[in-house]
Design a binder for these strands. Structure first.
Length: 683
DNA sequence: GAGCACTGC
């Protein structure tokens, strides 16, 4: 494979005017053939009037000009790469083109197969499939469906299914050759999510074993050559996008304070530029709320000479009702013939890909975002404010050109853009803890991780750490093979620590309670729930997770049980079960009054959201977050004795850095010896 | 005294 990789074949590199026109004049033949009939071949019903109306609009999408070409390349190749910018129509149209051309029945006509199209986000999978069902004039959930966690909207008749990349990966666990699919389309591949990267490697294996399977990789930016190299020189097609031109402005000098510069730019645009809403990219909640206050105040101080503004914050943890405000129109002029009003959205990266706001004409890009980084040495994922990539800057500026020509103000110099920004954001697989991913790969039957064909191989230390954690948890044996317990753990859509806690909870006679805890921890923001006493949506979501986990538990005959609520051991058993999963995430209270993580010896602080009334000597924590300080979040009080009882293989003092915790543990081991001896003597 | 964005038979 190594030599093949370098080969580059590019059939359709550039789409110029002439070839596009040629495609148009000789194209359409296939389209006309399929659409001349007034009967819908998918459900046998006559097409509705609306179908023809939408069809006319679809035909104006850029991707339609290359339908014929696309189908020819698809026919001649097992894998192809399609590059198309926003507005090309690839996500909705390509899967339909495929359906028109591919025989989805198996050769023996016994059963139908499907076309799959993956998306990185749930909302996209659901909304795109609805749109496509409408375009095909069928009912959603029948011929066209979607599949995301907790929502399986498809039937035996489904021929085209949109699903999250994570969902396709989990389907592969029971259907390793993905035999239910004839064509798999990986959309938004340039985003390089963890699941997409794993699917890349998995599908290259599957394609070797299934000559009848085809793969279409769709991507927005020009990382295409890298993709081509990886997929053995698969042909590449480019589809033009359809965006209005966006004029880019850079600063002359580097900005010292990007927040201040962003606010200044907002005010300037509001004073000098024509009508149109503004989108500002900042890095996090606190910064965004701060900027919103300052912008409102500064523009407020300018009085009637400028138009009124509506300043709206946007970030994921904002309650949905507040998020909806970004879709409200700009305010009307404060007096007749007065200057027009303007909407100013101040947002995190969520507005870069996940949410699209129409009417944005001006984008302000300071060039930073919070990005996840993983330090395998201390096993900590943290969020760091870092410079964005060129691809990300490009995506941000595109947000100004959705409805009309726009302007993007980059708060850095052109030189800095050219020289300092890296071309692409590092793929997630290089920035994450891979314990859960490695467990999935093992379950998928990939034993040799070192030689697994990753597009960007993770650091060996990250893989070693993941294997080590899984070995400590008993999911892998010393040879790295999946154990019985590991088999079960891999079935839970949870981190391995949490899966372990669930698997052992029956032994601690508290699986009912652990199920609830796991479900609540999986759900976003328990803080919010607490502050508001209760939150219906969050509880409902947690209950959903709980039901899913219960189904998995019963499949493996793990009994559902509780300790007597009034008994002494009720809480003790729960805490012990939690420790059985989280014994690698323990902190010890030092004499100095601060906590030190066990073995790694990192100074950490209890996150202010904790609900303890004292500082216990030993705590386990769910999350280690590195923000303004090193915080451990969601902590539980445990006893040192349990460490030596439940996880002696991890608390092996031979292999332990010298520290206070070690001395305490030594005493606990001695005490345990003594107790055992005494009980022997008594007998 | 505090939370980029996503995802999971």
């Amino acid at each position: 494979m190594g030599t093949e990789r370098k080969r580059k074949v590019s059939l359709f590199d550039v789409v110029d005017e002439t070839s596009a026109k040629a495609a148009k004049s000789n194209g359409g033949g296939l389209g006309a053939m399929n659409f001349n009939s007034s009967i819908n071949k998918w459900n046998g019903r006559p097409y509705s009037q609306r179908y023809y109306e939408i069809l006319e609009k679809r035909k104006t999408l850029p991707v339609w000009q290359q339908k014929e070409e696309f189908l020819q390349v698809l026919k001649a190749n097992q894998t192809l790469i399609l590059v198309g910018e926003t507005g090309s129509g690839k996500t909705t149209q390509i899967p339909q083109f495929v359906l028109d051309a591919v025989d989805i029945e198996t050769p023996d006509k016994r059963r139908k197969t499907m076309i799959a199209c993956t998306q990185p986000r749930r909302v996209a999978a659901m909304s795109v499939s609805r749109r496509v069902a409408e375009e095909m004039d069928v009912t959603i959930g029948e011929e066209v469906g979607y599949s995301v966690r907790f929502e399986y909207c498809s039937s035996a008749r489904t021929v085209l299914k949109y699903l999250t990349d994570g969902m396709l990966l989990s389907e592969a666990m029971t259907d390793p050759l993905l035999e239910r699919y004839k064509v798999i389309i990986l959309d938004e591949a340039h985003e390089r999510t963890l699941a997409t990267d794993v699917l890349f490697g998995l599908l290259t294996e599957v394609l070797k074993n299934r000559s009848d399977l085809k793969l279409v990789v769709m991507s927005a930016t020009l990382e295409a050559e890298k993709f081509q190299g990886y997929f053995n020189g698969a042909p590449l097609m480019k589809v033009p996008g359809r965006l209005h031109p966006v004029e880019i402005f850079y600063t002359q000098e580097p900005e010292r304070d990007y927040l201040e510069a962003a606010i200044r730019t907002v005010v300037q645009i509001h004073m000098c530029e024509p009508r149109g809403d503004i989108l500002v990219f900042l890095t996090g909640e606190e910064e965004i709320e701060d900027a919103c206050r300052k912008i409102t105040k500064e523009i407020g101080n300018m009085g009637d000479q400028v138009g009124p503004v509506k300043v709206v914050p946007l970030y994921s943890t904002l309650p949905p009702a507040m998020q909806q405000k970004i879709f409200e129109p700009a305010p009307p002029p404060s007096k007749e013939d007065g200057p027009p009003g303007r909407k100013i959205v101040v947002s995190t990266n969520i507005a870069e890909t996940s949410l699209t706001i129409d009417g944005i004409v001006y984008v302000i890009d300071p060039g930073f975002s919070k990005q996840k980084v993983y330090n395998p040495r201390v096993r900590v994922e943290s969020l760091l404010v870092s410079p964005i990539s060129k691809a990300s800057a490009h995506q941000r500026s595109g947000r100004a050109g959705r409805t009309q020509p726009g302007k993007c103000f980059r708060l850095y110099t052109e030189k800095s853009f050219n020289n300092d920004l890296q071309p692409q954001t590092y793929p997630e697989i290089l920035r994450s803890n891979l314990a859960s991913t490695v467990l999935t790969l093992k379950k998928l039957g990939i034993d040799d991780l070192v030689h697994f064909d990753f597009m960007d191989p993770p650091a060996p230390e990250t893989l070693m750490r993941a294997l080590e954690v899984l070995n400590y948890l008993g999911a892998l044996d010393d040879e790295g093979n999946l154990t019985k317990s590991g088999q079960i753990m891999s079935e839970f859509p949870l981190d391995p620590q949490m899966s372990k806690m669930l698997v052992v909870s029956s032994e601690f006679n508290c699986s009912n309670e652990i199920l609830s805890i796991a479900a609540m921890l999986s759900d976003e923001d328990a803080t919010w729930c607490y502050e508001n006493f209760i939150n219906h949506r969050a509880l409902k979501a947690a209950d959903n997770v709980r039901q899913q986990l219960v189904r998995i538990m019963s499949r493996f005959n793990l009994k559902l049980c509780s300790t007597d609520f009034n008994g002494r051991d009720y809480y003790v058993n729960i805490r012990k079960a939690m420790l059985a999963g989280y014994f690698m995430q323990v902190a010890h209270l030092e004499r100095t009054g601060h906590y030190l993580t066990v073995k790694d010896n990192q100074v950490v602080h209890l996150h202010p959201s904790n609900c303890l009334d004292h500082k216990p000597e030993w705590v386990i924590y769910n999350e280690y977050v590195l923000t303004s300080r090193n915080f451990i979040r969601t902590v539980t009080d445990i006893r040192g004795e349990w460490l030596v009882d439940i996880a002696p293989h991890y608390y092996d003092l031979e292999n332990f850095p010298q520290c206070e915790a070690k001395c305490v543990l030594e005493k606990l081991y001695k005490k345990r010896e003594k107790d055992r001896e005494e009980s022997r003597n008594r007998r």
